[in-house]
Structures are given as structure tokens and as C-alpha cells.
Amino acid sequence: MQCQNCKNQTATIHLTEITNGNRTETHLCQTCAQKQGLAVQTQIPLNELLSTLLSAQPEATGEDSTPQEEKACPRCGMTLRRFSKETLLGCPQDYEVFEKNLLPLIQRTHNGNTEHCGKTPSSVGPEQDKQIQLAALRRQLDVALRNEQYETAARLRDQIRNLQ
């Protein structure tokens, strides 16, 4: 099916509206739907995200007068300005130094997730490993409950109980 707007691309967004009992159908391609504000691009390119990283930051307040983008990691010297250009961080410590700034970016690139779940190095030790797995499961449980996915929630609750 062709897009009703540009008559060029294939329509992938199909909208049915019922107003006062009248049913109207709209068929648009992704680009036209986005232009009309009907669809959002689900995957935002990293570069776009990064360009908003600096602009969206609250102004630095109080004793620390260094602008956010110039704040440098004491270990590697990386700044947010440089990161937003190169898309790579300078050292593992950057994740702590810039945690607040990186968090929204991490969340958006990972479908809302902000906590690791999965393999942990053996050096982490069984107790900490358990805590990591538990934290991840509890977070998944929250999401399941919020979305009213009760079967998933029950399964997760069992998993948590077994781990504890």
C-alpha cells in the first residue's frame, strides 16, 4: 500500500480514527508519519542523542562554577564536549564522573534499562553476583507489574524467591 501523503513510499503506519461515529483511515510511510507527529522513530541515532546531551544539562549551580561540558575526568581528562564529538569515553571511571549526564543516554539506547543483568566476572564473588541478579530481577518485576503482565510478574517473583 502506498503512502497517501508522498505517494512514493510504502505505507507502514495505519491509523484508524473514529470521530462522531465516522471512521477514517490514514495510511502513511514512516517519514510522513513522523513529519505529522504520528509516529516516533524508535531508534534515535547516537549522534542525535549526543548532541542533546550537552544542551539538555541543567546549569551548574553553587560552588562548582565549571560549565558541565568542560568538567573533566580527573583520571583521563575526558570532557562531555569531547565525548559528544567522538562518541567514546576515556576510561571506566567516566561512568561515575559523568553518571548523571550519561544516565538519560544509557536509558534511551537500552530500551529504558539502566541496570546490568547477565554474566558477572568470577572476581565479583557469589554474594555480590547474587545481589546484581536480584536487583535486575526486581527491576524487571517492577516493569512487568507496571505493564500489568501478571504471568511474567509471577515468574519473576518465583525467581527472586529462589535466589534469596
Partner: peptide, 20 residues
């Protein structure tokens, strides 16, 4: 020893590869 963070998992140069 690999760089690992209790919250973010395995740390990577680009945040798009973070975690696993």
C-alpha cells in the same frame, strides 16, 4: 581483570555496548 561496574556491568568505550 575486566572493568566491571555493579550497576552498569561490563564497561565499554561506547555506552551503546554497556552491560553484557
Amino acid at each position: 581483570r575486566f572493568a566491571f561496574h555493579p550497576r552498569f556491568g561490563y564497561l565499554t568505550a561506547c555506552p551503546t555496548n554497556l552491560g553484557t
